[in-house]
């Protein structure tokens, strides 16, 4: 029996979690190099993966994952050619709303807590093209006269800054989840292709990007190295924006994807998984 590996996938809604799972599935079936992780077969139940497979391969935007998805989690069977190791990888595609509910309700399900005890590592998804924090009224914007006519929108925790919500979710995991310490955690910055546009002045490598664009999350991870051992990647699981998909779909899905670690770019979207599973 091959080893079973459970990973936790964390991220707010629309962070790119589902696209990444589909991309990994494609990469396992079509490994970019001889040494890459590859599929050695299919799990008994692939209903979750097959449901949106056509859309993913066709370059369509995937609908957001339902909160209470029934059925078994995506299961991928992989082989690591350099070592001959085989394993089964479970990637439960938890809806981003579940994490948002944890932040809002200050509770989580017992089954979620129990599942944490079995995880080997975690993938944390953030988006490169959305702001980490709500925008403050500062400088000239704060100097505009307030006519008082527009009643403010009442505070809704769901509208809190994304990086604040995610840090709190990580604090829950670190303090209430019975996870191994340090827990290996990959930060996957999705929609990385948007960073590489010529007009984009954001840092072009994932580490500095996180430091500059998601500073609270970056500080939290650096300051809690005893809880989380982290690596940071830029990921493009679709390959481009919706506008670019028409041209991109000339290529098969595994050729559209890209991942950046440090200043190295490749199509090895399984790199984070290899690190989490100690398969170098």
């Amino acid at each position: 029996m091959e080893n079973e590996h459970n990973l936790l996938i964390v991220g707010l809604p629309e962070a790119g979690k589902t696209s990444y799972i589909h991309a990994v599935d494609e990469l396992l079936q079509n490994p970019p190099t001889d040494g890459s992780l590859k599929s050695y077969g299919f799990a008994d139940d692939r209903s979750y993966l097959e449901r949106d497979k056509k859309k993913y391969r066709g370059g369509e935007r995937l609908e957001h994952t339902e909160r209470n998805l029934q059925g078994p989690p995506p299961e991928l069977w992989f082989e690591h050619p350099p070592t001959g190791q085989k394993g089964r990888l479970f990637l439960p595609d938890v809806s981003g709303e579940v994490f948002q509910d944890q932040w809002t309700d200050r509770r989580w399900t017992k089954s979620f807590q129990d599942a944490l005890a079995k995880i080997r590592g975690a993938l944390l998804f953030i988006r490169a093209d959305t702001p980490a924090s709500n925008q403050e009224l500062l400088g000239k914007m704060a100097a505009l006269p307030d006519d008082g006519n527009s009643p403010p929108v009442a505070f809704d925790p769901k509208k809190a800054s994304a990086q604040v919500q995610l840090v709190d979710v990580l604090q829950f995991i670190a303090q209430r989840g019975q996870v191994s310490r340090p827990l290996k955690l990959c930060v996957l910055i999705s929609a990385w292709d948007t960073v590489l546009k010529p007009a984009n002045l954001q840092p072009k490598t994932p580490g500095p990007f996180l430091t500059r664009e998601w500073p609270l999350l970056d500080q939290y991870l650096r300051s809690n190295a005893d809880c989380f051992s982290s690596r940071i990647y830029g990921v493009s699981a679709l390959g481009g924006t919706e506008d670019e998909m028409e041209a991109l779909t000339a290529l098969p899905p595994q050729d559209r994807v890209s991942i950046v670690e440090g200043d190295l770019s490749s199509k090895e979207l399984t790199l984070p998984l290899r690190w989490l599973l100690d398969l170098s």
């Binding site: 709500n134 925008q135 403050e136 009224l137 914007m141 704060a142 100097a143 505009l144 006269p145 307030d146 006519d147 008082g148 006519n149 527009s150 009643p151 403010p152 929108v153 505070f155 925790p157 509208k159 809190a160 800054s161 604040v164």
Partner: peptide, 17 residues
Amino acid sequence: EELNWLATIESGVGAPR
């Protein structure tokens, strides 16, 4: 976050409160 809410654009206020 709640304390800072009325100083954000998202809250819809014309000026920070």
